[in-house]
Design a protein around this nucleic acid. Structure first.
Length: 353
DNA sequence: TAATCGTGGAA
DNA sequence: TTTCCAAGATT
């Protein structure tokens, strides 16, 4: 079977098995002449970076409801968008989302570019996302390379070189399969195959549309591919967070600097997070209570054990850091998860209530 | 190039 | 409980 027959087999499978997703125009609808909205394609692809479909769905629906078009999003307040992104992770995506929306709205007449190269120049759009938008929204024959495509190609061609060294080879193989007709549907077909049948563990080779031509299956090593270089162990860091509640119900919070971990997000003032014991750094000179509680949270590259300090303070308190946010303006859902965990523990304590 | 950057679900 | 991993981008 040649490359073109493989892509044709994938498209035939997709025509029957395409998943219904909020941002997707299905193959039947699309062949009736309906084009996907580039704004929705872009928004979904940014949200889907290193994030599962299940986690994205509710966020996508809410963003579309709040901001139906790119000009609506471009006009939103930074804090509002960051608050709505809270919990989804990788917060640089939200900062770049707003930057990109404003470039498109203000410099590009509210229209996304239709070429891979021009898309690639926008904030937060890298090689994968540029190819995905070009293919899905504009039906350009771009080759999308994500974790799904890497896995499918590694198995289809039995590539035994470990990732990430195998990336160039896998990219070349994927480029060879990309068809000139229906490249948008094809891109989604490969990713759907990788997400459902050609899954990382226990791939369903028995019902795969490419089972007859898959070299890894022929060798009996499909579940073992792609191989990956060993990962480094995660160290444990320690920190302290200070949760102060004023007698009128306001909470002492700060907006974190744009750069670095949880950049641009709302959070509790605290110490640095270090592998050795952190030095106390209270944002307010009051009597802090140690409730003996600790938040445990794991980030991409370290474990965190976050000790809590709580205080109940009067309305004349003047903090060195952060600001008191009135209870009516504070939504715990605006917090990134680690900060929300701290709130969940502290808000139940009598010391702050 | 390699490190940084979140989170939640599955096994 | 721990590890793995998900439609990656940036520096």
């Amino acid at each position: 079977m040649r490359d073109q027959e493989k892509s044709t087999a994938l498209l035939a499978w997709y025509d029957i098995n395409a998943r219904s997703l909020p941002w997707r125009v299905g193959p039947a609808t699309r062949q009736a002449g309906v084009r996907p909205d580039p704004y929705r394609v872009w928004l979904s692809e940014i949200m889907l970076q290193q994030t599962t479909v299940a986690a994205v769905k509710a966020y996508f629906d809410r963003f579309i409801r709040l901001w139906p078009g790119v000009t609506d999003l471009a006009a939103a307040e930074d804090a509002t968008v960051m608050g709505e992104w809270a919990g989804l992770g990788y917060y640089a995506r939200a900062r770049n989302l707003l930057k990109c929306a404003r470039v498109v709205a203000h410099d590009l007449n509210g229209r996304f570019p239709d070429s891979e190269e021009a898309l690639r120049a926008l904030p937060g759009i890298g090689p994968y996302t540029a190819a995905a938008i070009a293919a899905i929204a504009f039906d350009r024959p771009a080759t999308v390379m994500d974790g799904n495509v890497e896995r499918v190609m590694a198995r289809l061609f039995a590539v035994k070189t470990p990732l990430p060294a195998a990336k160039p080879e896998l990219k070349a193989l994927a480029a060879g399969l990309t068809p000139k007709t229906r490249p948008g549907d094809y891109a989604q077909a490969v990713m759907d195959l990788g997400a459902t049948i050609c899954s990382p563990r226990n791939p369903a080779c028995g019902i795969c549309p490419l089972r007859a031509v898959c070299r890894a299956r022929a060798e009996g090593i499909a579940p073992e591919l792609p191989r990956k270089s060993p990962k480094k162990p995660k160290p444990t860091r320690h920190g302290t967070a200070y949760l102060a509640r004023r007698e009128d119900g306001a909470w002492l919070l700060e907006t974190r600097p744009d750069k670095g971990l949880l950049g641009g997000m709302l959070g509790w003032p605290g110490t640095e997070w270090t592998e050795s014991a952190p030095k106390e750094a209270p944002p307010l000179r009051v009597a802090w209570h140690d409730p003996g509680l600790e938040v445990r949270h794991t980030f991409t590259h370290f474990h965190l054990r976050l000790a809590l300090r709580v205080a109940h303070v009067t309305t004349d308190a003047r903090p060195d850091r952060g600001r008191f946010l009135p209870a009516a303006q504070f939504r715990p859902s605006d917090l990134p998860t680690v900060m929300r965990k701290a709130y969940d523990l502290a808000s139940r304590l009598p010391a702050v209530n």
